[in-house]
Write a protein that binds this DNA or RNA. Structure first.
Lengths: 333, 333
DNA sequence: CTCTTTTGTGACAAGGCTGTCAGAAGAGGA
DNA sequence: TCCTCTTCTGACAGCCTTGTCACAAAAGAG
């Protein structure tokens, strides 16, 4: 029924081991032998059993992507990036959602590794900063790369963007458009990026000589509802902000929604800016001025680092981009 | 380094095979023996090697979810549903995006199955209706369940909602709100659901004695851009529709966007309805009247059927729900 | 009390592949 | 020509678990 390496070896007229050599692109195989084997593989449509390879060898041809992120757009982009790189490498991707707050996070990750023998792990924010997860991975000596970690880590590679600089850029853009009272909605406290973005906002204000008003900064949870709630608080003030900068697009969409409900015209009465440039940014009205975070590219690059031969930890920064769209404008004189 | 079944057997003072029996919940194990083994498993934190189980046994404890859908919200919900059921069953989920239009779709699916030995497959629309995919799965005699297939299939189980009835419901709702000229935006021609929704729209018009005007029906591709383009065409007519019913939320968002751009007030000047009730429906302004498609539940149920013992094909329909929100209203007198 | 059936346990092979090692064949040097 | 070194190939064991079978002990039947 199943086509095994044995069948291939018989058709090609070589030993099992030689077929194995060809499949693994090892050297010491004569060109002609290689061609014969390849022909037999094609003819029989042979796909080696991952289970057997895993058991016998030292690789499993699988990696795991571990995430706990509730933004479908974000994880979709991440999955796509990792997947694309895996595909190129002939490796399978195991997508593994986890609950970062769970008691047995470490145990779950440990179990995953024991069961599947994955060759490596990609950690997506905010799992990147769950100490139990990091400790467990290190304890097992497994190779892993982090996407957009919030903390530094000498041992393992990571890819990221400069959240602080991006928030700084956006804030500066708003200031250049004449805004002085700029509301800011914080991200989820679990995500280290939240701090960075907050910091960038503050730094830009400082540089422009604008006082930082704690009252203009409201908490948020990276979701639509919290964006709406924050907008409500901000717009209830006597001195309304002329612009609101939300730490991600979902919250910015919440701001838009609330503004519309209040009969405010965006951007004439209020400029709204987001962060991430998820698809959502262009699915709302007006389309959001936001920061394009190269999510898919980050995932792709991270996976590349995982497969890389290099021993040391590499920390790779990818560029962001300010996307100016219709949700922000010059403040009215 | 690695904890194996052998270590457990030593600690528990039983044979390897007995540990295996306990792990697989087989009968013919004395209660006390079982407890001893379980204690040893817990103590050593033993997780059996999937690779070895796969190779030795007849199950792989893995299933594959195959999809080719570009709506992040949709596939996110599907993944979540499948994942939840798998978790309950102690089975791993392999998420496998494919290109339904690819030359070697069958080969890719075949390779996946050969490599991973998955115990079953979940097919999500529109892969559910790719003949090569179905043929390949059948050729291999592998068990699979389809989520929202467009075609009937006697052999394998499926879960679905009644797209025609749902579209009928929505159209009827609009008619009841006084609308007579109702524009309709078709879905992607590859998705069988598109036809069903179109049919339901037409059936409701019929029943209400309203003429079906082909001119009010525009093609679409289930994405934002095509929704916007269709809206443009529809709103250029002399006799503008008073309502537009898009076959999914993304396109409805496109309609909203275009309407806003034209300075139309939704819903006063134009009612807009969507389909699916993805998160997006509430992230736009005004929030969309739409059909709640129980995507996650469909996926959960489908996976349940896959694990079920039943031999015959089961076709399970899950209920939809009309979600009336602010994007539609009574037509102005 | 013996004979059959059920229950509980273990020895051993097998599953499909890779790692190790040994050895053959060919290339290069003296 | 003989010997060494490199290139190429195959035999065989082993990875960790489950399936099969054999057998011992306990339970039920007559």
């Amino acid at each position: 029924m199943r086509v095994t390496i044995k069948d291939v070896s018989r058709v090609a007229g070589v030993s099992i081991k030689t077929v194995s050599r060809v499949m693994n692109k090892e050297k010491y195989v004569r060109d002609e032998t290689r061609r014969r084997v390849e022909a037999a593989v094609a003819q029989l449509n042979f796909s080696p059993s991952l289970a057997a390879r895993t058991l016998a060898g030292s690789r499993s041809f699988q990696i795991a992507l571990i995430y706990d992120n509730h933004s479908p757009y974000y994880i979709h982009a991440i999955q796509e990036g990792v997947w694309a790189r895996c595909r190129a490498e002939g490796v399978r991707m195991l997508a593994q959602p986890v609950d970062i707050a769970s008691e047995n996070l470490a145990q779950e990750i440990g179990g995953l590794i024991d069961e599947t023998h994955v060759d490596g792990v990609i950690l997506s924010s905010p799992v990147t900063d769950a100490p139990e997860a990091l400790a467990e991975l290190e304890r097992r000596g497994i190779r892993f790369v982090r996407i957009s970690p919030g903390t530094n880590h000498a041992i393992t590679s990571s890819v990221f963007m400069d959240d602080a600089q991006a928030a700084d850029d956006m804030t500066m853009h708003l200031i250049n458009e004449g805004h002085r009272r700029i509301g800011f909605i914080l991200g989820h406290p679990n995500h280290m990026a939240s701090d960075q973005r907050h910091y960038g906002y503050r730094r830009a204000l400082d540089r422009a000589g604008i006082d930082y008003e704690p009252d203009l900064v409201r908490p948020g949870l990276f979701d639509f509802a919290s964006g709406m709630a924050a907008a409500e608080e901000l717009l209830k003030r006597r001195a309304k902000p002329t612009a609101i900068f939300a730490s991600n697009d979902d919250m910015a969409a919440g701001v838009l929604s609330y503004a519309h409900r209040m009969g405010l015209d965006v951007p004439q009465d209020l400029s709204v800016a987001g962060f991430d440039d998820t698809d959502l940014a262009q699915l709302v009205w007006p389309p959001l001025t936001t920061i394009r975070q190269p999510t898919r590219d980050l995932a792709y690059a991270a996976t590349g680092l995982l497969f890389g031969q290099d021993e040391g930890a590499i920390h790779q920064r990818l560029p962001h981009e300010l996307m100016v769209r219709a949700s922000t404008t010059r403040v009215r004189p």
